[in-house]
Design a protein around this nucleic acid. Structure first.
Lengths: 194, 194, 194, 194
DNA sequence: AATGAATGAGACTTCATTCAT
DNA sequence: AATGAATGAAGTCTCATTCAT
């Protein structure tokens, strides 16, 4: 990648980041291309130089965040700690992202509400890969004798579902700090696996 | 209420029910006034005789379903059974509704994405009242010595969050029947309270 | 068809007629939905009440004119006159329409420049049916011994091509009246068939 | 013209040639500056170094082809053959170009659909000069006693119109070869002059 | 009570054109 | 000489809403 391509790639990322920001602020369905452009002091026409349409931009946006989440989880999975510790760390990472990128992260949940057919498949695949990392952690815990759980898939879905829900009510001004919440969540959810 | 008013009230309910149906089918953001009217073999103009605008219609729609849920939960709360049994029954009811009315039920979650300020307050109130019933069940369980839980609110949110998530993946064609799923969910989630 | 439907049908026709007019004036590719609406003192949004999109409107426009032409030709074909007379009358009708509706009539010629796949087929079919009437007249003339021509198809295409060309240069202010032109054209083109 | 100017002139011609090609492929109204540039592995910005805007480029494009056609016709006109032979040869050349460069050649027909006022005049002039060569051939034929025709202009327009039409239906995969078609056309059209 | 018709604001998208480098 | 990037005008289309009948 030469300098120019790097610059363009950087710009593309800038756009994605701005888009995330605006979406977080205005909510997904009220964010227009104009809004995204304005955030960057660009005109909406320029966005089309970098992304072929709104859907593509949104998809990349989502992909960036989910990839990021996936990588963090993989790091955790690779660590030399107990499965319980891994699981707790993973839950905390997940909560972090769910809070920070709630709008975008939600796209994962109901892609069909926004994306057309061609995009849904890769989104679902990535989502499943992400969830699969939780499955592997649970499996590992069972093998090590740390966890006792019959319905692995369902346990995983309960955990992720509970964690996702945090966006609904979390507020920085709340009674507990984010760290405290993450700790409590992790502790409670671990109960399901034992 | 005279006959005419009764008729109008009935019609209003018909509209709400049809709206729920269409929204379930097409997803929230892709449902137009036209769609709702078509389901009833009406024209969209007529809807405005019964509801002053789309937002009002949606609000009523949501209100109807949430009221319904609330009533079912109250019945359960009033029964002469153990708190554990109540909680399980409540979770099953919640799962039922989350599956059946997923699109509408979701409005509760992020009212600000759709509703303007004036509507958010009553929605949040109703939602909190609904959640409050869970809180009361938990409280009762603690007093009776059935449950052991420090962070009551958070436990409740974990339970509801996990339950809400079911919409994301539930399919009638899945491996487990709805009843089996409800049973498993109830069992696992009860672990959090003990 | 009840009154209301009649009214709507009439409006649709009004729109088509206005569209034809505007297109004649501004040329095909410079006519916007706004232009068409303005001609009728409507707003562009209203056009979409009657036609689902621009392409559909254009298609109907074209269809109306070509159907009209087809009917006139059929009448001529059914008359009890010599094939030479029929042919001359047909050429005159064709010239008339080519002059009056030149822009729209041209769509027949190159539908692929404007229409998407789904529309091209019916257009081509209608066009071929129209041309087919000329073929039948020629065939009839040959059977009656009035015409002598080996390459029937090509002769027809030469005749229609020459006739279509009139739009390029015809002007009401020209040296000859429309009637004179039509007479001369008909005479000259008949030579090809003998 | 120094080397640099020569190079630029050559490049300009390259562009015109590529433009013709792309236009033939994609149709006139669907050809963008981007398309033309892409064909040459340039970027659209660069085109503006050689042509001040799209209209100018198109005009030159058209001019090149029409000049070419004119030259070929002049050659024929200068030959020592009968007027009938000249006419046939001219028709064949015209058919050739009409087939090969149909999109561009069509600009001649309706310049006002694409060009602004300032360009129309020179285009019409060139077109008339081109048509004038046909007129001169006809005139010559009359003087030599080869042709008998009262309305010379109209005869010429019939001939050119018929010939232009060939683009509408000609296909390399058709029943007749291009050469056969040209022969038949020339024969039939000559009938008009006698 | 209901509807057909019309409206207009706003969204997405395309593309010729400009310009600093 | 060439280009990457940005712009802005213009066009199509959607849809909640209004209103006379």
């Amino acid at each position: 990648m030469n300098l120019r391509e790097k610059k363009a790639a950087k710009k593309r990322e800038d756009i994605l980041r701005s888009a995330s920001l605006v979406i977080s602020r205005k909510g997904f369905h009220h964010t227009t291309m104009e809004d995204i452009a304005a955030e960057l002091l660009m005109t909406k026409g320029s966005l089309y130089y970098y992304f072929k349409n709104k859907e593509e931009l949104l998809f990349q946006c989502h992909d960036l965040i989910l990839s990021n989440a996936f990588n963090q989880l993989e790091d955790i999975y690779g660590k030399e700690i107990s499965s319980g510790e891994k699981m707790k760390a993973a839950i905390k990472v997940h909560l972090d992202i769910a809070i920070q990128e709630k709008e975008i992260f939600n796209l994962t949940v109901k892609p069909e509400q926004i994306f057309s057919k061609e995009y849904i498949d890769p989104i679902v695949k990535k989502r499943d890969a992400y969830a699969g990392l939780f499955d592997r952690m649970i499996q590992q815990g069972i093998q090590k004798g740390e966890f006792t759980v019959n319905q692995k898939k369902m346990a995983r879905m309960i955990i992720l579902g509970a964690a996702n829900w945090i966006q609904v009510w979390y507020s920085p001004e709340g009674e507990f700090s984010k760290e405290e919440i993450e700790q409590i969540y992790a502790d409670y959810l671990l109960k399901i696996l034992t």
